[in-house]
Design a protein around this nucleic acid. Sequence first.
RNA 1: GGCGACAUCGCCAAGUGGUAAGGCAGAGGUCUGCAAAAUCUCCACCCCCAGUUCGAAUCUGGGUGUCGCCUCCA
Length: 462
Amino acid sequence: MKIYNTLTKKKEDFIPIEENKVKMYACGPTVYNYFHIGNARPFVFFDVVRNYFEYMGYQVTYAQNITDIDDKIINKAIEDNSSFKEIAKKYIKAFQDDTQKLGIRNPDFQPKASEVIGEIIKLIKELEKKGFAYEVEGDVYFSVESFKQYGKLSGKKIDDQKAGARIEANINKKHPADFTLWKKAKPGEPTWNSPWGKGRPGWHSECVVLSQKYLQSESFDIHGGGVDLVFPHHENENAQAEALSNKPLANYWMHNGFINIEGEKMSKSLNNFFTARDILKEYNAEAIRFFFLSKHYRSPIDFNREIMQESDTAVKNFYSVLKSIKYKAIDLKQDYSPELIKKKAEFIKAMDDDFNTAKALSVMFDLVRIIKSSKDDELFSQEAGNLLVELGGVLGFFQDIENILTNDLGDLSEKLLSILIDIRNDAKKNKNWILSDKIRDDLLKEGIQLLDTKDGTKWEKK
RNA sequence: GGCGACAUCGCCAAGUGGUAAGGCAGAGGUCUGCAAAAUCUCCACCCCCAGUUCGAAUCUGGGUGUCGCCUCCA
């Protein structure tokens, strides 16, 4: 398996630290708002990464933090005339609801920054003791000059940056690029006691502490997040960890590309934000998933109505072909037929190549075509259906398969439905098109689609 | 200014030296009272120029264009 590693800027063979085990960590949300479609991309993508490792027989431990101490949360609390804690609580709940609706499995660990303040203080003390950090009037900074490998992840050289590039002017800092580890308390802010007085941790320490704690090691396999986190967040995380352990925090650093909205960068000033919550009202979760996976994770991707519509149609096609063969999960006594083994191998090859999900999806469409062209061979088409569901499952599709494949009518009676179909057929014989169309249209409104086929009128749930 | 990514059909997208997958949309046929669904068929020399090579979308150089990071924004 090959993974593009931001640290080396190359695709590399994936070699886990412990055989057959993967320890991965992805940066989670800052809980000050409903998360948007751009935030959703890494959540979905790393969910797929985890699935795929499991599919390939790895034992995966996946941890993700929740940032519940942050300026943005404090500001939001002031804005809403609410408390810091209430805001965090509200949006943690929203985060969990929305990821669940998106069909994203919960990580094995999902700790909050506020749970490990003591450990963060310990980390900062250690950095200070070893000369990587210094205190100025209650603030503690990491000294980038003390860690000679600073910049190794992002490829930035600290002295190279243009003087004009905006770097916070702060006379207390020894070097303009030094970043905050501990912030002195300001009035009205949540604070904790520390050796440097009351204050709160900066953003970059929590991920170091949480990842090492929950993955139970100084250095783990995969660290992921959006490209924007490469610098400064991940650079700074790594600097803290590696300064102390002489090992990179993670061996492989994976970063997903951004999402644009109709060709433009998502931004507050353009007011082109879409929350996952809002999009879920219009499109189903698997259409959103298809949209993310239809392009390689490192590429930028454009969000627009047309694409979402296409994604929606594409996913429906997966289901409709399964419906057409009345798919039922079968227990395979032996391995797949040679033609299907080949398709499975293609899928694995695509995913092994740095998670080429777009290519993997095309294998699913191949299977759709195979199923369509082999409907006469019931056993084989069911077998192909099995593989489609198996591979789709790795990508996180078919979560709703039971519900969609059954023709449960709920409060509509099946008998009444067949009576209506009879009446409509009589009307058709008498060329009473007004009545027959009314029945067809009204049923469609109830989610029942009539299909006039050669073998008579059939129906299916939409 | 520094660092980096990308440019393939109307849209999305695979392809990494051997003569352009797939999806959506579209066109036409079958089926139908009409429609939907289904089904069959059709639909690209790969941003430009030069080079390497028997052979390049794929490699090299140069253009042009788009985008990202350098701001605690995934």
